[in-house]
Amino acid sequence: MSAHLIADGVAFSYERGQPVLNRASINIESSEFTGIVGPNGSGKSTLLRILGGLLAPASGTVTLDGEPMARIGHRMRAQRVAFLPQSVQPTFSLTVFETVCLGRHPHLGALGTLTPHDRDVAERCLDAADCTDLRRREFMTLSGGERQRVMLASILAQEPALLLLDEPTSSLDVHHQVEIFDLLRRLAEDGYGVCVVTHDLNLAAQFCGNVLLLSGGSPEPVAQGTPVDVFAETTLSEAYGSPISVSEHPIEHTPFISASPRSRQSR
């Protein structure tokens, strides 16, 4: 199932007169892996929430397959677009399989009864996220990397066309970060449209086909395109308000980004 999510010229502010986003546009399509990057407070998570229909933009439009997002019902939206927030801390513990089955919610009837088909989907999603061996474990006993894979399986169980993930690798070690991004790239190759908010520019450069760069100093996006186009020293330095150097990754041959303290640059 293909899908096309478009935000066109959206603006948003939490406080009157203090826009977080302005004239931001982005396309999320099936089989594409898109990254939203930028410094803290640049509006990355806000843009992702707008794309997911969790926030309504003050101006601009968000359409899903040509239909305005605001007109799509909550359940219908969740069947096509899945959203994984930055931190997920359950109040009470469920098993891994129960947690993944929660992803079937948009497809269930009023009584919420799981059918054999729903259980089959959950099993397949466990497999797709490489966590079949965890299915009987309590979610609260899992490590950070395991939890993230299980949450990924649970949003896959929604059977959406598009996946929106807010910093899915925050608080993971470097090995698990690469594992999660590799998994997301494979999902994009399988036809999912994937959009991640991330602070890790090198992971974005290595795995994403498109990136949108937001700025810390202005609510308007700085640049959009392939990582090679966007991750230029001057563009990144302008967006982050701090000198950033870009070289070539020795193995992947993608942009390799490093930042130095301002004090060292001024010497």
Partner: peptide, 16 residues
């Protein structure tokens, strides 16, 4: 059950 994993994830799952 959805709310137990936080309001944002619940909203993403189609809960008002």
């Amino acid at each position: 059950d959805q709310l137990g994993f936080g309001p944002e994830l619940a909203a993403g799952r189609g809960v008002n």
